[in-house]
C-alpha cells in the first residue's frame, strides 16, 4: 500500500459554475477528490459530468471570465490553489502539475512549430533553470520527444501540428507534460480522440512513464478496463459530484452506488450478450439542477429523502466511499 499520510492533492467540496445567458450552469456540485503521493487515481463518468472542469480547476486554466467558484478548496501540498498568488500559481503550473488534454489537435497551437511550443514549455520550467548538464532548450526538447518514442525528433521540431498524425500529436503533448519533472500528471482521456490501436499505444506509453518516474497521476477515462489496469483507486463521477470511490478490485466486485452499478453493467462483454441496456435517461440540466441527489431522476431505488439534500460521501469500508442514502438505510 502507498504511503497513507502524504496527501498530494485534496479537493474539498468544489463547486464550479459557468456563466451563461440566463444564469449559471452549476456544473460542479461539491467534488471531493484526493491523490496521495505516488498514487495513480482514475476518474470515470459519462461525458459532460464535469471531469475536465475539475481538472482545469486544479490548474486554474478554465476559460477566463466565464466561470465562478462559489465554494470549495483545492489543496496542493497543503496550500489552497484557489488562494494562490499569481506567482505561486505559475510555479505550480511550471513545476508541480502538468495536464495532457483529450484532443491533441485542439491542445497544440496550430500556427507554431512543435519546437517553439515544446521549447517554451521547457524554457519556463524547472528543467531548464536547474539543468545540471547545461543542455540547450533544443537538446532537452529532443530528449523529451525521444522519451515518447517519436521518430526523427530533430525533424519533428520544425513541423507544424497539422503535419503530424493524431497519435504523434498526442505523443508531443505527453512530451511537453513530461519535459520537466512533475509530481502530478493529469491525463484527460488521452486516447479518446485517437484510433483504438493508437489509443492503446498511448496508454502503454503513459503507463510506462508513470511506472518509471513514480509520479502521481489522475487518469480520466471512459474505459473502465483501462482504469482497472492502470490505477490504484477509482473515482466515479456523476453530474458534478463524486458518487463513489474505491480501489478497482472493490469497485468491480462490490459497487454500491446505483450509478456505478449501471456504469459497470454498461460495459459490453466480449463473450456476447449483445448491446447492454445502459442507464436510461440523461444528465440533469445544469441550469436548474434538481435539489438533492443529482442521480435521483435516473435511479431505480429512489426515496423521498433523495430530493431533499445531496447525499454526502459515506465510508462504507476503508477507502470505499459512497454518496448515496442507500448506504444509510
Amino acid at each position: 500500500m502507498k504511503n497513507q499520510e502524504n496527501i498530494l492533492l485534496n479537493i474539498k467540496d468544489l463547486h464550479v459554475w459557468y456563466r451563461v445567458y440566463g444564469g449559471y450552469l452549476k456544473v460542479l456540485n461539491g467534488v471531493h477528490l484526493m491523490v496521495r503521493e505516488g498514487e495513480r487515481v482514475g476518474l470515470v463518468g459519462e461525458a459532460g459530468c464535469g471531469k475536465t472542469t475539475t481538472m482545469k480547476s486544479i490548474l486554474q486554466i478554465l476559460p477566463p471570465g466565464d466561470f465562478h467558484i462559489p465554494q470549495g478548496q483545492i489543496f496542493y501540498k497543503g496550500q489552497d490553489v484557489l488562494k494562490m498568488s499569481f506567482k505561486e500559481l505559475q510555479r505550480l503550473r511550471s513545476r508541480e502539475i502538468a495536464m495532457i488534454f483529450q484532443d491533441p489537435t485542439a491542445a497544440l497551437n496550430p500556427v507554431f512549430i512543435i519546437g517553439t511550443q515544446i521549447g517554451d514549455v521547457i524554457k519556463y520550467s524547472a528543467a531548464f533553470e536547474e539543468n545540471e548538464h547545461k543542455e540547450t532548450i533544443k537538446e532537452q526538447s529532443i530528449k523529451a520527444l525521444k522519451e515518447v518514442y517519436l521518430p526523427d525528433p530533430e525533424r519533428m521540431l520544425i513541423n507544424y501540428p497539422l503535419q503530424l498524425s493524431g497519435g504523434m500529436k498526442q505523443r508531443v503533448c505527453i512530451a511537453m507534460a513530461i519535459s520537466s519533472p512533475r509530481n502530478l500528471l493529469i491525463a484527460d482521456e488521452p486516447g479518446t480522440s485517437l484510433d483504438v490501436t493508437i489509443q492503446d499505444q498511448i496508454m502503454r506509453l503513459l503507463n510506462e512513464i508513470v511506472e518509471k518516474r513514480k509520479t502521481s497521476i489522475i487518469l480520466i477515462t471512459h474505459s473502465l478496463g483501462v482504469a482497472k489496469e492502470m490505477t490504484d483507486r477509482i473515482y466515479v463521477m456523476y453530474a458534478g459530484t463524486i458518487v463513489e470511490t474505491a480501489t478497482p478490485e472493490v469497485l468491480f466486485k462490490n459497487p454500491v452506488h446505483p450509478y456505478t452499478k449501471g456504469l459497470l453493467a454498461s460495459v459490453p462483454k466480449i463473450s456476447g450478450g449483445g448491446i447492454t441496456k445502459g442507464i436510461p435517461g440523461k444528465l440533469p440540466s445544469y441550469l436548474n439542477p434538481p435539489s438533492g441527489c443529482r442521480f435521483q431522476l435516473r435511479c431505480e431505488q429512489g426515496d423521498p429523502i433523495c430530493s431533499e439534500k445531496p447525499p454526502q460521501l459515506f465510508e462504507v469500508e476503508k477507502d470505499h466511499l459512497v454518496a448515496c442514502y442507500l448506504t444509510q438505510r
Binding site: 482545469k56 490548474l59 486554466i61 478554465l62 476559460p63 505559475q90 510555479r91 505550480l92 503550473r93 511550471s94 513545476r95 502539475i97 502538468a98 495536464m99 488534454f101 484532443d103 485542439a106 491542445a107 497544440l108 497551437n109 496550430p110 511550443q117 517554451d120 514549455v121 519556463y124 520550467s125 503533448c173 511537453m176 507534460a177
Partner: peptide, 11 residues
C-alpha cells in the same frame, strides 16, 4: 484548448 494548455504549462 491550446491556450489553456499553454497556460497550464506555466508559460
Amino acid at each position: 484548448d491550446f491556450l489553456s494548455a499553454e497556460r497550464g504549462y506555466g508559460i
